[in-house]
């Protein structure tokens, strides 16, 4: 009988630790009622942004997507509409982060990346909601309000991430 042993390398351990932090924030946030139905501060993105700036985009993508997957398993929303919304947001924001990381690199700091990620996150969710769940132009009337919230929360997360990695904010 052959035994297959998978040895986690340094990056695996790193991703696991960072994801664990992000999951903790995500689950904690899911337990707190939000004053705006459907909008959460998305503080777990602080981890994604900090990871991006310290370890690069690849690690940040792993952390972000694994966080959405595992947190949904823990909250019990796996494969539900909530999960689809969460995943589409995470995908959109990680794609935007990848593109802007290639384009701007270290010309941008935590705040800039965080704002981009937050707006993309909300945009991705709206795209999914509009195409899949509520294909009614009326829902687009909510877009400005939710984008404003995304901007504010993105700015806040960015400042927190900057403080966390001791970058001047």
């Amino acid at each position: 009988m052959t035994t297959i042993t998978l040895l986690p390398d340094r990056e695996d351990t790193l991703v696991a630790w960072l994801t664990a932090f992000a999951i903790m924030i995500h689950v904690f946030e899911a337990a707190i009622p939000s004053p705006f139905p459907g909008a959460k501060p998305g503080l777990a993105n602080v981890i994604t942004i900090a990871t991006l700036l310290i370890f690069g985009w690849r690690t940040a993508a792993w952390v972000s997507l694994l966080r959405v997957l595992v947190a949904s398993l823990m909250i019990g929303t796996f494969l539900s509409p909530t999960f689809a919304m969460s995943l589409s947001g995470a995908l959109a924001s990680i794609l935007i982060l990848g593109a802007s990381w290639r384009l701007f690199g270290h010309y941008l700091g935590a705040v800039g990346y965080s704002i981009l990620a937050a707006l993309a996150h909300m945009g991705g969710q709206f795209l999914l909601a509009y195409t899949l769940f509520i294909p009614n132009p009326g829902i687009l009337r909510l877009l400005p309000v939710f984008m404003s919230l995304a901007l504010v929360f993105g700015l806040l997360s960015g400042i927190i991430a900057a403080a966390m990695i001791k970058q001047e904010s």
Binding site: G112, I115, L116
Partner: peptide, 8 residues
């Protein structure tokens, strides 16, 4: 905040 951040 970097200049790029303010721009964004």
């Amino acid at each position: 905040m970097k200049t790029g951040d303010k721009l964004i």
